[in-house]
Each structure stands twice: as C-alpha cells, then as structure tokens.
Amino acid sequence: MHDTPETDGPMWVFGYGSLIWNPGFTPVETAIATLPGWARSFCMRSIHHRGTPEDPGLVLALDEVADAECHGVAFCVAEPERAHVLAYLRERELVSSAYLETWQQVRLADGREVQAVTYVIDPAHVQYCALALEEQAEIIAYAHGGRGPNHEYLTNTADHLAELGIEDTDLTYLAKRVRSLRDNSLA
C-alpha cells in the first residue's frame, strides 16, 4: 500500500541519487531541495541494479537521522503525467521491498515547501546495511549489476551533485577512494 496524497495537480519527486542524473521522465520544473531528518548514504545492498545476490553492490538510500538533512533535487511532474510517472517510479524503485515509498515535506531553494514522493530505506530489510566508508569503497570499486558497474553509479552521482553545487563529503571521499582502488588494481 502506498501513502499517496489525494491531491490533484502537479506531483513533486525528491531525487538524491540516480534520479538526479537519470530521472527517466521529463519534469516541468526542477529545483535544488532540502529534506530534513534524512541522510543520503550507501546503506542499501544492491542485488539487482549494481550488484548480484552472490556479490551485492551498494546503492544510495535515505536513512532517517534526527539532525541530518539531505540536499538533492525536486522534480515537478505535470498533473497529466502524474499517474504514469508514479507507476514508472514504483517499477524502478520498488524492485525489492528495501525501499519504502513515502511523502516527505521538502524545502525548495526559493523557500517553497512541497510534499514530494521520496524513496527511503526500510531499516528492518535484509538489504539494509551500515558500513564504514572504507568497506563501502571496497564494495563499490568492483561490484557490477544489471545496470552496470557500481563505481559508475557513484561517480555519476558525485559528479552531478558537484555540478549542482551540492556538497556531500562522504560521496566526494568515496569517489576519490574508489578511483584509487581501481587504479591500483589495474597497475
């Protein structure tokens, strides 16, 4: 069951990972946005897109943390596209039950506050993990899944956040560390 607000009009989607650089739909508006109470981290083992059941990778998820805030991108979907985009997102994001579809209050860069569909981690799910940055780097450097190498997912996300002026020190560190691990393995 999905907690979908019963509203007409446009729908907002909060992106914090691959949705930033590959939303898969055409928004009518995009805005830098902040989601309070949640932290972006590689806390979900990926057994489909960036890893396999035998050799899981890691993907970003939102972990609930009281004093945290996550900076990402909010995408506005026109009302006629709402049902189609929601169906697409559910097929993409709910491939396993590790993500939960929620509606969160996000603050846009211009000060507006909107309700946005937001996919967060289920901390009780078997794919949830809390790993040190070094262990994350070692997994991300070599894992590969149905949508490609795990390190490309990290690099694309870190690069796009940097282009948007969004600082994420953990992702910046991980991108450098994974590059170093991969370079050393090729030497």
Rank of each mutant, 00 (worst) to 15 (best):
M1F: 10
P5I: 06
T7N: 15
D8A: 15
D8G: 15
G9E: 07
G9C: 07
M11A: 10
M11Y: 03
W12F: 03
W12G: 02
V13C: 03
F14T: 02
Y16H: 08
Y16F: 12
L19R: 03
I20Y: 04
I20S: 04
W21P: 01
F25G: 08
V28A: 14
I32T: 15
T34V: 15
L35C: 02
P36E: 13
P36W: 03
G37L: 09
W38P: 02
W38V: 01
W38D: 08
R40W: 07
M44H: 00
M44T: 08
S46W: 00
S46Q: 05
I47E: 12
I47D: 07
H48D: 12
H49P: 01
H49A: 13
R50D: 09
R50I: 11
R50L: 09
E54Y: 02
E54W: 04
L58C: 11
L60Y: 05
L62C: 07
E64F: 03
V65T: 11
A66S: 09
A66N: 03
A66D: 12
D67T: 13
D67K: 08
D67F: 09
D67L: 07
A68Y: 10
G72A: 08
A74Q: 02
A74F: 06
F75I: 09
C76E: 13
A78R: 02
E81G: 06
A83C: 05
L86D: 04
A87H: 13
Y88E: 01
Y88C: 01
E91V: 08
R92M: 05
R92N: 07
R92G: 01
E93H: 06
V95I: 14
S96A: 15
L100D: 06
E101M: 14
Q105I: 15
Q105D: 15
A109Q: 12
A109D: 13
E113Q: 13
E113L: 00
V114W: 03
Q115K: 09
V117M: 01
V117K: 00
Y119K: 06
I121T: 14
I121Y: 03
D122W: 04
A124C: 12
H125E: 04
Q127K: 01
C129K: 02
C129T: 14
A130V: 08
E135M: 02
E135K: 12
A137F: 01
E138S: 12
I139F: 05
I140R: 07
A141K: 03
A141G: 09
A143N: 08
H144L: 11
G145R: 03
G146N: 14
P149M: 12
N150W: 02
N150P: 07
E152W: 05
E152M: 04
Y153S: 12
Y153M: 10
T155N: 14
T157N: 08
T157D: 06
D159M: 06
E163W: 03
E163N: 12
E163K: 12
L164I: 06
L164D: 05
E167K: 11
D168Q: 07
D170Q: 11
L171K: 01
L171M: 12
L171W: 04
T172N: 10
Y173R: 10
Y173L: 13
A175I: 00
A175P: 02
R177E: 10
R179N: 15
L181V: 05
L181I: 14
D183G: 00
N184G: 09
S185N: 02
L186W: 04
